[in-house]
């Protein structure tokens, strides 16, 4: 069950829930961009922004911790690699490898930034219906020529829907093979192909049935894009995000 909670929409009525999904995507991009260059003051400000939004969206601290835990190792690797590679005043050295003061500081900043970006992404996905994300992307891609935005949107939806199904199939097949002692085979390539081929066969069969079912329900690639409407608060949010970005660039 744990995996199903990860980055999953939770209904609500907060400021973020009510924001237009397009506007949320733009703001998320702007804020992430601001984060990349920010140092102490900026990072504190962004953390505060996150805290306020998370509090407003009713995102419990436990969830935040839980989600970050998955990325914990990743954050640690970023921190350590910074510690070891930044040149500067060494504070500890072992067999020619130096941990520098600058490295520790830079490492802290890097993982702080990364954590913030992950958390902002979490806020976005917790407060936005998958379908709205899809619609927003369809709207944002529409003005770009030669990009089949409707097809991309449909594909995104199907991917979200079918990843758990395909994972389930994979688990089933791998269990069945382990029950017949595939673990005894030493050749990893053989073991891999024994798993991948049946999964692919099942997935292709399923995709044909899926196409039948979609056709039965009158699927038409040119279905109208659901309308979205930006209201005043959305424009205010974007203005604020731009403002924030400029300020953070200059401090």
């Amino acid at each position: 069950m744990a995996q199903t909670i990860t980055f999953h929409f939770q209904p609500g009525t907060s400021f973020l829930h009510q924001m237009d999904p397009r506007c949320k995507i733009i703001c998320l991009a702007l804020v992430s961009l601001s984060t990349l260059k920010a140092v102490t003051a900026g990072l504190l400000l962004l953390t505060l922004l996150f805290a306020v939004l998370a509090w407003d969206a009713d995102l419990p601290g436990k969830t935040i911790f839980f989600e970050l835990r998955y990325f914990g190792l990743f954050l640690l690797v970023v921190f350590i690699s910074n510690c070891l590679t930044q040149p500067g005043t060494p504070i500890y050295s072992l067999k020619g490898i130096n941990i520098t003061r600058e490295g520790v500081v830079e490492g802290l900043f890097a993982s702080w930034r990364l954590a913030l970006i992950i958390l902002m992404g979490l806020l976005f996905s917790v407060s936005t219906r998958p379908k709205d994300i899809r619609t927003a992307i369809e709207h944002l891609l529409a003005p770009i020529p030669f990009v089949p935005e409707k097809r991309i949107a449909v594909m995104m939806g199907l991917i979200v829907r079918f990843i758990p199904v395909i994972l389930g199939t994979t688990r089933e097949i791998s269990d069945a093979q382990r029950a017949r002692a595939i673990d005894q085979r030493k050749n990893p390539i053989l073991r891999m192909s024994r798993l991948v081929l049946p999964v692919m066969r099942r997935t292709i069969g399923r995709s044909q049935r899926l196409a039948d079912a979609m056709e039965s329900r009158c699927f038409d690639e040119n279905r109208p894009t659901p309308p979205l409407k930006m209201v005043r608060t959305d424009w205010q949010a974007i203005t604020l995000a731009v403002f924030f970005h400029i300020i953070l660039q200059s401090i």
Partner: peptide, 13 residues
């Protein structure tokens, strides 16, 4: 309504 429910459900929710 097809035999395999899983391959006829297309929505994310």
């Amino acid at each position: 309504i097809f035999q395999e429910a899983d391959s006829q459900i297309v929505g994310e929710t």
